[in-house]
């Protein structure tokens, strides 16, 4: 299978995102872990495929003839989504969250403004596990931790409880990770793109 990607013909088998990344083109994909199935939640990998805006992570390359990552529309919409995402960080200067690390550099590359929207997010901290802690103020609800816990490890200690803006990452129905069925495998920590779940301590 081949498709025209940003004007060049490329061979592609999996998703459009696979093709884009294989071609060395930078494209945000906050909720797509390299090793986990697509979630399609963060909507930052939007591209134009045959005139439609699609999420590259879940759009099969075989269904596209022509894909452009840098059209004006695609860039504008990606930027808008990133701006909504950036407003999910409560603590400026935190080591995690969308304002730090990879997400921040992605956002700045895409020209997203950090202050278009007023900040909104919870501020709960769960430090009951000696292995990792959870900082809601850095969470963008991308769902990678949930996929790691439910679909990779099949533990199912983490879920996205509630809906709409009330959605929260929670250790199931438990109040804390310590009280939950969590086995502390840390796959969620590895999957988290914003260090909302982050390892504690380290070597003594």
């Amino acid at each position: 299978m081949s498709l025209i990607l940003n004007g060049d013909e490329v061979e592609a088998g999996g998703s459009v995102l696979d093709a884009v990344l294989a071609a060395g083109i930078e494209l945000p994909h906050l909720c797509k872990d390299d090793n986990l199935p697509a979630i399609g939640a963060c909507r930052t990998c939007l591209v134009e495929a045959d005139g439609r805006i699609v999420a590259a992570c879940s759009f099969p390359a075989s269904m596209a003839k022509r894909v452009d990552t840098e059209t004006k529309t695609a860039r504008r919409i990606r930027r808008g989504v990133l701006e909504l995402t950036l407003a999910m960080q409560a603590e400026r200067g935190d080591e995690g969250g969308p304002l730090a690390g990879e997400t921040a550099s992605t956002a700045s590359r895409e020209g997203a403004a950090v202050d278009r929207f007023a900040v909104r997010t919870g501020r709960a901290v769960d430090a009951t596990s000696p292995f990792f802690s959870f900082h809601e103020a850095a969470c963008i609800l991308c769902g990678r931790c949930v996929v790691a816990c439910q679909d990779l490890q099949h533990i199912s200690a983490i879920g996205l409880a509630g809906r709409g803006r009330d959605t929260r990452v929670t250790p199931g129905a438990a109040d804390t990770f310590r009280e939950s069925i969590c086995t502390s495998c840390g796959s969620c920590v590895a999957a988290c793109p914003t260090s909302a779940l982050r390892p504690r301590g380290g070597a003594e």
């Binding site: 990779l152 086995t183 502390s184 840390g186 796959s187 003594e204």
Partner: peptide
Amino acid sequence: VWVDDQPGNLSSEGMLCVKGRFGTTFVN
């Protein structure tokens, strides 16, 4: 400073448990 999983490993397929991920500080 951190132990990550290895998705390509045919035995573990990107998984680890608490001891592998967080339990190597005994080394130091």
